[in-house]
């Protein structure tokens, strides 16, 4: 972990993941871009609107028996609503995403580089797409816009960041997404739908009147 100070307010900023290149200062909401140990400012975030997400930065869980830590989030909007993508770092040094959409949760990690990613124009909803040895069905193509972020991220999670996202599913609950972004190129993530219970999450938010997480 790298501990640095916010160039704007001087507050402490932790980079837990080596792959994090971006963070939102928890004190002054400045967007901070990291080049090794040099930090530069990239404007400010507006205050995030609270939502009913049970996850929070600092929540802990286990996926495939590897502990992970929630260290950042990006909130994205598409034409029919919002979803959360929580940036997680595993204890073994790898990273991934805990996606939270329409009440469902999924864990995604970067697909091996050997996997061929199809071009966005070649993907049609309902069609089969092969990713490595697995055959998925494309269920959704949408344009998503970042409307806010917090904590640390592996890319510049500034408001207005736009990408095209494709959801792919398998009947057994396996899930994959492909993201096409003008700056960061295309990236593919593989994973599966999973319940918070199975992730053995701790440090979840508690809401009055909703019982224990």
């Amino acid at each position: 972990m790298i501990k640095l100070n916010c160039p704007s307010c001087g507050g402490e900023i932790n980079f837990r993941s080596k792959t994090s290149v971006f963070a939102v200062c928890g004190f002054c909401l400045s967007n901070i871009v990291r080049h090794d140990v040099d930090l530069s400012l990239l404007g400010k975030q507006s205050e995030l609107q609270e939502d009913m997400s049970p996850i929070t930065i600092g929540s802990l869980g286990k996926f495939n028996n590897v502990p992970f830590f929630v260290c950042g989030r990006i909130i994205v909007r598409w034409e029919d609503g919002y979803w959360n993508e929580w940036y997680i770092t595993f204890k073994n040094g790898t990273d991934g995403w805990l996606v939270e959409a329409q009440g469902d949760f999924a864990i995604l990690t970067a697909a091996p580089s050997s996997i061929q990613i199809p071009a966005s124009k070649d993907v049609v909803v309902g069609n089969r797409i092969n990713l490595g040895s697995e055959s998925f069905v494309a269920t959704d193509i949408k344009t998503m816009t970042c409307v806010g972020s917090e904590g640390e991220l592996p890319f510049n999670g500034i408001e207005g960041r736009e990408s095209v996202s494709i959801d792919l599913e398998k009947s057994d609950g396996q899930f994959a997404t492909i993201e096409y972004n003008a700056d960061d190129g295309m990236s593919c993530y593989l994973g599966r739908y999973i319940s918070l219970n199975k992730l053995k999450m701790i440090g979840l938010r508690e809401f009055e009147g909703w019982g224990r997480p």
Partner: peptide, 16 residues
């Protein structure tokens, strides 16, 4: 090294 913001998890939050 849990970040400070995780404190909010410790107290119950009124339904937002």
């Amino acid at each position: 090294s849990r970040p400070k913001r995780s404190k909010r998890a410790k107290s119950k939050i009124k339904p937002i």
